[in-house]
């Protein structure tokens, strides 16, 4: 016992160092998992407040661009307004609530912190638990998908961008309907990769890639990007497809958080399947 204490005393500096490193490792692993939210994150009160005031300044500078984007979106929405359409048929349809059950609701949010130059990128949004945001909700913008909510505090939420090592999104080629998965290769915030598309499928540069209906996180048909380059001469059974992303992640300002009202039902059903 005495020797043990002597040993501990002699190497106290090294042992203290090891303890701190183990603590860091614990924090890193905790931060990686979705289920247990970490307490060292940018949704915490102090850092979120600083980020919020900084983004207030940059947001003012970028007001012109934001206005233009919103005006564009308004124009798009206006063209969907029922009054714009001339009703060509005399037949009248009755919309009934029992038929049209609303599946998705959208929460608007402001981006108060954002990065694109790391291997794993995150955003912080100005909406939190109080506004109905929960973990694993999707985040989109008018141009395409943005990411998935990872941590939530009372007023803020932290989002894993699709520019992240672990992001993997079920995607569909709009024209042919084939399903693959979209991942980010790293380094270039304007490009991603579409994987798991078999070689016999014809893919042309310029084809549109959208989200599939498989995930319970994103609605179907949200834009991801367009095909940039196709390489069929690979060693495996699949093609290498590089995708131009439709969203400029460096200049995100306003986004929508997607709430899927039937998510729990879908997840439950799919989990039952695994048990059998």
């Amino acid at each position: 016992m005495r020797n043990l204490f002597l040993f501990l005393w002699r190497y106290n500096f090294f042992i203290f160092f090891l303890l701190l490193e183990v603590l860091c490792g614990y924090l890193i692993i905790r931060n990686k998992s979705f289920q247990r939210s970490s307490f060292v994150n940018s949704a915490s009160q102090v850092s979120a407040r600083v980020n919020s005031s900084i983004s207030g300044i940059t947001e003012y500078i970028n007001l012109k661009n934001a206005n233009e984007a919103l005006a564009r979106e308004n124009a798009g929405l206006k063209s969907l307004y029922p009054d714009v359409y001339y009703v060509d048929s005399a037949l009248k349809r009755l919309a009934n609530d029992t038929i049209y059950k609303q599946q998705y609701t959208f929460i608007t949010a402001r981006v108060i912190n954002n990065s694109v130059n790391r291997r794993n990128n995150y955003l912080t949004l100005s909406r939190g638990e109080k506004h109905g945001v929960a973990q694993e909700m999707g985040v989109i913008t008018s141009d395409g998908i943005v990411g998935i909510v990872k941590d939530v505090s009372e007023h803020y939420s932290s989002v894993m961008s699709i520019l992240h090592k672990d992001s993997r999104i079920s995607a569909r080629i709009k024209k042919s309907g084939y399903i693959g998965s979209f991942v980010w290769g790293g380094y270039d915030p304007f490009k991603g990769e579409l994987k798991d598309i078999a070689k016999h499928v014809k893919v042309m540069p310029g084809d549109t890639i959208v989200t599939s209906a498989f995930s319970a996180i994103f609605p179907e048909g949200i834009m991801i990007g367009t095909v940039n380059e196709v390489n069929t001469e690979t060693g495996s059974n699949f093609q290498e497809i590089s995708v131009n992303l439709s969203v400029n992640y460096g200049s995100l300002r306003h986004v929508y958080i997607v709430q899927n009202n039937m998510r729990a039902e879908q997840i439950n059903l799919e989990e039952n399947q695994h048990d059998n």
Binding site: C24, G25, L27
Partner: peptide
Amino acid sequence: AFILGLVIDMFSDTGGMHAAATVL
């Protein structure tokens, strides 16, 4: 070093990566 790393981590959502490197 540990405190400095944690403060940076808090602002950049990196768990304890900066703390680990700075303590080292």
